[in-house]
């Protein structure tokens, strides 16, 4: 009931390269881009129309049977910065060009899922562009049943729809909540209500102002 298997020799590039090659064989042109970091991780980007197909290929044909997580990334730089702006000043100029990360991309919203093989413990990060106009892909539930809650969460937080999901109810927020909190253009209200004091770590006493110290008590 126990095992003393030695530390698995982590395969180098060849194994990870082969993953990408296999995926290209199965998915063809739907595999848009890939990145292999030797000894570290694999990133692939597929077309939105091939999202479920990619899941099926990974699970059934390539043995990635462990579903790790599914989420999304909003590549839009936050229009609010870190929420540290002084509201009395005009808003500062910000670079709002969208730069996608590993394995590239064309859209602002990207799906990100990670599946792992339970035998050789190598994972693949699968990315997928979803269009701003109709952010929707096919659900992964028929492939990985555990995607259910992750898709609900992603739907709630990013507003990405999943066709074929049985119930995309909100998990955390009230049903009538408007907006998608993890999108970058959704302001962090706590920082908006009261401006972040920034590097000032001690607030002046209310009414204290310029008065001489040691006067009261």
């Amino acid at each position: 009931m126990s095992s003393d298997a030695p530390v698995a020799e982590i395969p180098g590039d060849t194994r990870r390269d082969r993953i990408v090659d296999d995926l290209r064989v199965h998915l063809g042109a739907s595999l848009l881009d890939s990145l292999v970091k030797p000894g570290d991780d694999v990133w692939v980007r597929v077309e939105a129309s091939a999202w479920r197909r990619a899941g099926e290929v990974l699970r059934h044909d390539m043995g990635f049977d462990y579903f790790c997580f599914l989420s999304a990334i909003d590549w839009l730089p936050s229009p609010y910065g870190k929420g540290e702006d002084d509201p009395t000043e005009p808003p500062p100029e910000r670079d709002d060009t969208i730069r996608q990360g590993y394995a590239g991309g064309q859209t602002r919203l990207q799906l990100l899922a990670r599946v792992v093989s339970s035998t050789d413990h190598i994972g693949v990060n699968v990315k997928c562009d979803v269009s701003d106009a109709d952010p929707s892909v096919e659900s992964w539930i028929p492939v990985y049943a555990g995607a259910n809650w992750h898709e609900r969460e992603t739907h709630e937080m990013f507003g990405i729809g999943f066709a074929g999901h049985p119930d995309l109810r909100n998990m955390y927020l009230p049903t009538e909540f408007e907006g998608h909190p993890l999108r970058k253009d959704f302001p962090l209200l706590a920082r908006m209500v009261k401006p972040w004091p920034g590097i000032v770590d001690v607030e002046p006493l209310p009414g204290g102002g310029d008065d001489e110290e040691g006067e009261g008590e």
Partner: peptide, 14 residues
């Protein structure tokens, strides 16, 4: 669930 959601993913961004 969600009775204790604190939004850490959003908070880490600031």
């Amino acid at each position: 669930c969600g009775y204790m959601h604190r939004g850490y993913e959003k908070l880490t961004e600031v």
